[in-house]
């Protein structure tokens, strides 16, 4: 797939997921959608999908830890 097309798809996905965040409002779904959006930004925009795995783990791990913290504290 053309890399520009991939970026536009990432953008479209982020727009839809953001709308879903507002539409849902439920804590679990909102956190899950935020996690997916973070993953799209890290892999798509920051281009870590084909980057060194340690950096990819660090960036995805940040979102995972923070969002898990939010869920844990909200429960």
């Amino acid at each position: 797939m053309n890399s520009s097309v991939r970026l536009w798809l990432c953008w479209a996905g982020l727009m839809v997921l953001s709308l879903g965040t507002v539409w849902s409002g439920a804590a679990g779904v909102v956190v899950l959608l935020a996690m997916v959006k973070g993953w799209v930004i890290v892999d798509g925009f920051m281009e870590l999908r084909h980057g060194p795995w340690k950096w990819r783990v660090a960036m995805l791990g940040w979102g995972l830890v923070v969002l898990a913290g939010i869920v844990g504290l909200s429960a």
């Binding site: 507002v22 409002g25 439920a26 909102v30 930004i41 925009f45 940040w62 979102g63 969002l67 939010i70």
Partner: peptide, 19 residues
């Protein structure tokens, strides 16, 4: 800039949406 975006995705969920 992407880092700013990444942080906002979490802030938006936490500050504005989660009920």
């Amino acid at each position: 800039w992407h880092m700013v975006d990444l942080v906002w995705v979490v802030l938006f969920a936490l500050v504005y949406v989660i009920r």
